[in-house]
């Protein structure tokens, strides 16, 4: 079947099978390979994208279900001039990524968190990111980056 959706502001269409997951449509048909697949049980969060403004694990949704939706992926997160957005910049500034594989999901989840809670506490950040697994950073610098992206002073948090 044919599906059409708005992805990062542009209308995109493609043929999918009924069983095609949204993440596979994004990666394989639209070649938006920034969205990653890290598990097969919807636990890891590497595939988080925004669907109509909501953070969604794109491995839990069929492409057909997203027909007509507004999708935003990590490829659509930089500023208009191509520079890193506030969240992306905070991740770089605070070394909130190492191998980079979970990073797109972390960025998308962070954007969703800060939309609903612009100044989250440490505990709120950790709770919100429970659905995003990172194996590299031990979460220290991710939590720090998220709080910094929200405009909070993180200088008192353990150095480096």
């Amino acid at each position: 079947m044919k599906v059409t959706m708005t992805v990062n502001g542009a209308s995109r269409s493609g043929e999918v099978e009924g069983r095609t997951l949204l993440v596979n449509f994004l990666r394989d048909t639209l070649h938006l390979t920034g969205t990653h697949v890290g598990c097969d049980t919807s636990q890891c969060g590497a595939c988080v994208v925004h669907v109509n403004g909501q953070a969604v694990k794109s491995c839990t949704m069929l492409a057909a279900e997203a027909d007509g939706a507004e999708i935003k992926t990590v490829e659509g997160m930089a500023n208009g001039d191509g520079s890193l957005s506030t969240i992306q910049q905070a991740f770089q500034d605070h070394h909130g990524l190492q191998c980079g594989f979970c990073t797109p999901g972390m960025v998308m989840s962070t954007a969703a968190l800060l939309k609903e809670n612009p100044k989250p506490t440490e505990a709120e950040v950790r709770h919100y990111l429970e659905g995003n697994i990172c194996r590299c950073t031990g979460y220290h610098n991710i939590v720090k980056a998220v709080m910094a992206a929200s405009g909070q002073d993180v200088s008192t948090i353990a150095a480096e």
Binding site: E75, Q88, F101, V107
Partner: peptide
């Protein structure tokens, strides 16, 4: 020096090139 990582830019923008991205 604690220089920020240059590789982060591609990872943060979805431009990384992992093996599964190769077709």
């Amino acid at each position: 020096a604690s220089i920020k990582r240059r590789e982060d830019v591609r990872f943060l923008t979805g431009a990384g090139n992992y093996t599964d991205d190769i077709n």
